[in-house]
Design a protein around this nucleic acid. Sequence first.
RNA 1: GUCCCCAUCGUCUAGCCCGGCCUAGGACACCGGCCUUUCACGCCGGCGACGGGGGUUCGAAUCCCCCUGGGGACGCCA
Length: 485
Amino acid sequence: MSVRVRFAPSPTGFMHVGNARTALFTHLFARHQGGTFVLRIEDTDTERHSEDAVNVIYDALKWMELSWDEGPLKGGNFGPYRQSERTDIYKEYIEILKEKGLVYECFCSKEELDNMRQEQLKKGLPPKYTGKCRHLTKDEKERLKKEGRKPVLRFKVPQDRIVIWKDLVKGAISIGAEQLGGDFVIVRSNGMPVYNFVVVIDDALMRISHVIRGEDHISNTPKQILLYEAFGFNVPEFAHLPMILGEDRSKLSKRHGSASVAEFKDKGYLPEAFTNFIALLGWYPKDGKEILSREELIERFDMKDVNSSPAIFNFEKLNWMNKEYIKAYDVSKLTEMIIPYLEKAGFDIGKFDRKWLEKVVDATRDYLTVLSEAPVYMETFLKDDFEIEKDAAEFMNEERLNVVKKFLEKVESAPEIDGELFKKIVKETGKELGAKGKNLFMPIRIALTGKMKGVELDILVSLLGKDRVVKRLHHAISKLERREP
RNA sequence: GUCCCCAUCGUCUAGCCCGGCCUAGGACACCGGCCUUUCACGCCGGCGACGGGGGUUCGAAUCCCCCUGGGGACGCCA
């Protein structure tokens, strides 16, 4: 049997990290097995879904480089791949269930059901539909319809069944059918079928071999298996992935920091780092290698190695991993990704030579945790009329200012300046004034950047060139003499 | 409340299925040191866990039971 898996998100307007991880695992599983990765949009609840929300899904998958073999925008032999476009198909299958006598109309209103639930809860009973409408006579149905009631369709759950399946990550799971909350709704009163129904039809018709999804779907699985059986469909394999929790052990959400893919993208996490990190949430490679390229991930991924316990999303480790990727990334690509952040910070990037900019990126990349921090570190290279920070200004005194002046003299008399010459000039300056250590280097650093910490000065100077160095020194000296910030 | 799932350092986890090689390994974080005429990087070292109780066994992190704790699900959401 060929491996066909799907990622079936609902367009809610954002892509949760948990969903992203499900998409990743599904994709890795497909690629590892040489199977087909299908994307299907679950938008049966038309009132709540918008086109923008669908684009959010495409964007997230594109960013994470999870390409689908079949699905919307791509096509395939088992389409359409949007549930909102499959209503005719669903109707057909609803008819089959009706003919088999496995469903019935229920006229209970939402209020009635709500009350029933409340009462059961109050008595300490599990909320459950009682099957009230299961044996309505024709006359009763007519009467209720005349009242203007629109019925839902409920599936007759066989009460004596115990549904068992062997979950690929959880192992054997068995749930008694009487625990399912009674006969469940498969078609709403507005005629739209409901998730538990359509997911079965779609997965069966799309020949899905393995259903990979979050653990929160475990309780849906027996209902779905019952439907597979009702239709005589082959039941697929199931793999329920553990939840991703926040640091307080509750389901990861915005208040834990970020919970959607777009947020991580905006903050400047590299897609490779983000993907690598979430791959390690609930899965671990046999050889223990943690920094893994997509190819290495695919090569190593095995559902057997997926953990069954929930994982906490550790932002610290993601940060570390992002740093690692930034350090190793292709400079040109990195620069490309950093430019938008620079522009947002108000820098006119067109002014700078692209190759030169790449050198600046290369000189500052080690300092970054996320790309959005790039302007802070690159500013030193981009802006000559900097301010002098308070602690830096306080550090300066007349003697130290003289170091700067002497240094300036020497730079001005040099034809050009590079890293080597810089070191030589500093040495000479120190010798002549009897300054060394912090008293020598720090004044120069401050005069060149306005700050007491930052990149290696020889790199800075060689990238700045003589003219800008001179300009900066004059700028700083006049500020320091007038005690301006 | 009911059902389902889960349980190794603060966190991600290896080991668990097929008990001994585990004085429980790695990574992040943290702490200390080295490197560095700044900060970061890098290198070296340290701290730190089998939730509790019963079994089974010569021997249990590993198998069984109970407890506790955590999570999830109980919708005309998906």
